[in-house]
Amino acid sequence: MTDTTHDIVDTAVAAGSFTTLVAAVTAAGLVDTLKGAGPFTVFAPSDDAFAVLPAGTVEDLVKPENKDKLTAILMLHVVPGKVMASDVSGQVMDPATAGGATIHVDGTDGVTVNGAKVVTPDIACSNGVIHVIDAVLLPKG
């Protein structure tokens, strides 16, 4: 799936399988950021990935008083630059995220990010790339 005419947010909306992620990005006020010039690499949890979080987690995170925590979680899923799956194939790296934390990317057996498996790689967008992952990345500690 390649759509280089739509940005990351519009591509996620059009896909239909990221409604929770889009709602979270909206609640955190990050829509304009992810519509920016980029390029960005976004590890996008599917709605199914959000569904396995403990009951009430998402509802709690999108409350206005939890915006900072939600933003920190979402920023774990964004790496500056455009990184395609082939760029990490056979490699292990710990890139810095847009939020300043590091994530562990392992491309030695498929691609995993902090243990979450990339289930659909390389969805090209006008301002970067989306890789669909099967779990939500959470801050350590």
Rank of each mutant, 00 (worst) to 15 (best):
V79Y: 00
V22T: 05
Q91F: 11
G16I: 09
M84E: 13
V129S: 07
E59G: 15
A85F: 11
F50N: 09
D7K: 02
S17N: 15
P121F: 04
G128W: 09
P121A: 13
P80Y: 03
T97G: 08
V25D: 02
T41D: 06
L138Y: 09
D106P: 00
D87K: 00
L53W: 01
L70I: 08
V113F: 00
L138S: 11
N66C: 04
V31E: 10
V92E: 11
A12P: 00
A124S: 14
D7Q: 10
D60V: 00
V136H: 06
D7N: 15
D47H: 08
V42Q: 07
S86W: 00
N114H: 08
I73Y: 04
G99P: 05
A12Q: 00
G38A: 15
F43C: 05
G56R: 03
D122N: 14
P45A: 10
N114L: 06
G110K: 05
L137V: 12
E59W: 04
S89R: 11
A101Y: 03
F40T: 04
G115T: 09
T2S: 12
F18Q: 01
L76M: 14
D106K: 02
G115F: 04
A28E: 09
M93R: 13
P95F: 00
A37T: 14
H104Y: 06
D122K: 07
P80L: 07
V111D: 02
V13S: 00
A15K: 05
T11G: 05
V132H: 03
L21Q: 02
A24S: 14
Q91C: 02
G29D: 04
V78G: 00
V83D: 01
L30A: 12
P39H: 10
D10Q: 14
D10L: 03
A12E: 01
P39M: 09
G56Q: 06
T5V: 04
T108R: 13
A15D: 15
A44P: 06
T5I: 10
A37R: 09
V118S: 07
V88D: 01
T5Q: 13
G16Y: 08
T71C: 10
L74V: 13
K35S: 13
D94P: 01
P39S: 10
L21A: 03
K35R: 15
A12T: 01
V22R: 09
P64F: 08
V92P: 01
T57L: 03
D7V: 02
A51T: 06
V79C: 01
I123H: 11
L61R: 05
H6N: 12
D122V: 04
H104F: 05
D109Y: 10
I123A: 15
V52C: 03
P54N: 11
V9T: 02
M93K: 12
D47S: 08
A98Y: 02
P45M: 11
V119C: 04
T120E: 12
P95A: 00
I8G: 03
A37P: 13
N127F: 03
T102V: 12
M75K: 14
A101M: 11
A72S: 12
E59D: 14
V132P: 02
T41W: 05
P121Q: 07
L21R: 03
G90D: 11
T19G: 09
V62H: 09
I103A: 03
A96G: 09
V22I: 07
Q91D: 05
V52Y: 06
I130D: 06
